[in-house]
C-alpha cells in the first residue's frame, strides 16, 4: 500500500494542515477522541507526540503537556494499546513525534514493526541525526514503509538541505526559526528563508512549523510551502477543554475557514 502521507500530498499540494497533539493529553484516554475530532473537523495530518521526560527541542507548553501525559501514565506501550484498531475509524495520515531515547529503548526495529502493524505512516525524531539515521537505521524504516521526516532550519546550509531532502520521505519539516517550539518570533523575518526554501525546488513537500498559531500565520506559511504544522497553540486550546470535539472544531475553523 502507498504510504498515506504520499497519498495525501498526491491529491493536495496546498494548505495542508498538520496538527500536533501530545498523546495521553490532557487526559490519558483523550488520545483517540482528539484524533477523531481532528480528522472530523478538517486536519489533513495528525502528529502525535510521544511524551518524554527530557524534551530538548520543545518550549514550556509542549514540555508541560509531556510531563502531564507522563503523569497520566502514558508510555509507548500504552500508546500502541490505545492505537490498536484505530485505522477502522481514522484515515488521515498519522505521524509519531518523539525523542530518540524511548525509541532506542523500545528497540528501533520493534518500534518500526509496531508502527507498521498499527497503521502509523511516519516518524519525527528530532534528535536522530541524519548521519546516524543513514548509517544505522534507514533500511529498517524502509522495510516497514515508515517515513522518517527530518527538520530543516534557517541555519541549515543549502547543501545539507539537499542531502536531507534526498534522505527524507513524506515531507520536510521546515522549522520557521531557530528556536524551541512555541516561541513567538516575527514571521515576516522568516520570509526570506521561506522564499529561499521555495526556490530550492525540493523533491519532498514542505510543511512549515514552529510559531504557527492562527489563521494569519498559517496562511503566511502555507503561501510559501505545502502547508503548516500547529502544535503549541493547539495544546493551549485543549489543555482545559471540557468538550474535546467542540474545542477542536472551533480551533480548526479559526484556522481554515474563510
Amino acid at each position: 500500500m502507498q504510504n498515506r502521507i504520499d497519498q495525501l500530498f498526491a491529491k493536495k499540494q496546498h494548505g495542508v494542515l498538520n496538527i500536533y497533539c501530545t498523546a495521553g493529553f490532557p487526559q490519558l484516554n483523550d488520545t483517540l477522541p482528539v484524533m477523531t475530532a481532528l480528522q472530523q473537523h478538517g486536519a489533513d495530518l495528525i502528529e502525535l507526540g510521544m511524551p518524554f521526560s527530557d524534551p530538548l527541542a520543545d518550549g514550556p507548553v509542549i514540555q508541560d503537556s509531556s510531563t502531564k501525559a507522563l503523569q497520566n501514565g502514558m508510555s509507548i506501550h500504552t500508546l500502541f494499546e490505545q492505537l490498536a484498531g484505530f485505522r477502522e475509524r481514522i484515515h488521515v495520515p498519522v505521524i509519531l513525534m518523539g525523542y530518540f531515547n524511548p525509541v532506542l529503548t523500545y528497540g528501533v526495529e520493534a518500534f518500526c514493526a509496531k508502527c507498521a502493524e498499527t497503521g502509523i505512516d511516519g516518524i519525527i525524531v528530532p534528535d536522530l541525526p541524519m548521519a546516524e539515521f543513514e548509517a544505522d537505521y534507514k533500511p529498517i524504516f524502509e522495510k516497514y514503509n515508515l517515513h522518517l521526516i527530518f527538520l530543516v532550519t534557517p541555519e541549515t546550509s543549502e547543501a545539507r538541505i539537499r542531502k536531507i531532502d534526498s534522505l527524507s520521505k513524506g515531507f520536510l519539516y521546515a522549522v520557521s526559526s531557530s528556536s524551541t517550539t512555541g516561541k513567538d518570533k516575527d514571521m515576516n523575518d522568516q520570509q526570506a528563508y521561506f522564499e529561499r526554501l521555495k526556490k530550492l525546488q525540493l523533491t519532498n513537500p514542505v510543511l512549515i512549523g514552529f510559531g504557527i498559531k492562527d489563521k494569519a500565520t498559517f496562511d503566511t506559511a502555507a503561501s510559501y510551502a505545502n502547508g503548516a504544522i500547529i502544535g503549541t497553540a493547539f495544546i493551549k486550546a485543549i489543555e482545559h477543554s471540557k468538550d474535546i470535539d467542540k474545542t477542536v472544531q472551533s480551533f480548526i475553523s479559526g484556522i481554515i475557514q474563510q
Binding site: 525523542y99 524511548p102 529503548t105 534528535d127
Partner: peptide, 22 residues
C-alpha cells in the same frame, strides 16, 4: 544504567523501561 541518549550523547544512563530518564 542502560545504554541510551542523554543530552545528545549515546551513553549509559538511568532510565525506566519506557526510556524516560529517571
Amino acid at each position: 544504567g542502560t545504554i541510551g541518549i542523554i543530552h545528545a550523547s549515546k551513553t549509559l544512563l538511568m532510565q525506566t523501561n519506557d526510556g524516560q530518564i529517571v
